[in-house]
């Protein structure tokens, strides 16, 4: 079995992508300061802090994780451990529109993998990556709890059922 690094750790999936819009700006750090301040004295507050920091920054790059570690006076290794444990947290920037394709059993037998292949081909990115214009990223998920609609694709907050691979780009193109 080959090594599978956590996204954004040893791979560089976003090579060549203009990340200027997704870089961490000074005002984001000020917001993180306020989040840390709110939780500093409460034990076990790492997860809510990470959640809110991800809302502010869109993702949790190394700089932000170490900033939070210093602020909460905990080991940066622990922050990284929690950030890589929960699939909710992402260490790489996500697109403006996150396309989640379900690869759970019901969706899988309804050929959801073909949807992923089509998206990869048309958007020119792999799962976990982001398009050069920063608009889209693809994520493969395990069961969204809507097996009756298999195969399921979720774009942003919108859920689409019984999606055919040939039709998926029509859905994606609705999101600018």
């Amino acid at each position: 079995m080959s090594q599978e690094p956590a996204a954004g750790v040893t791979e560089t999936p976003n090579e060549g992508v203009d990340l200027r819009d997704m870089s961490i700006k000074p005002e984001m750090y000020r917001k993180i300061d306020r989040i840390i301040e709110k939780y500093r004295s409460r034990p076990g507050s790492l997860i809510p802090v990470l959640q809110q920091a991800q809302e502010v920054c869109g993702y949790l790059p190394d700089k932000v994780q170490r900033y939070i570690a210093a602020g909460l006076k905990i080991s940066p290794s622990v922050v990284f451990g929690v950030a890589t444990f929960y699939s909710f947290f992402t260490l790489v920037p996500r697109g403006k529109h996150v396309i989640r394709v379900c690869l759970g059993t019901a969706c899988y037998v309804n050929r959801s993998e073909e949807i992923v292949d089509k998206l990869k081909e048309k958007l020119g990115i792999q799962v976990g990556e982001i398009t050069k214009d920063g608009k889209y990223s693809i994520e493969a998920v395990r069961c969204l709890g809507a097996c009756g609609l298999a195969p399921v694709v979720v774009v942003g907050q919108d859920t689409y059922g019984a999606v055919a691979a040939t039709k998926v780009m029509d859905i994606v193109n609705k999101y600018e």
Partner: peptide, 26 residues
């Protein structure tokens, strides 16, 4: 490293079959 030394250099990172002992960003 945490309990006795109060350093906390190591942590469990990732999950499931990919879980490993590491430091922040390896």
């Amino acid at each position: 490293c945490d309990e006795q030394n109060a350093v906390g250099e190591w942590a469990f990172t990732r999950r499931g079959t990919k879980a490993r002992i590491s430091t922040d960003f390896d």
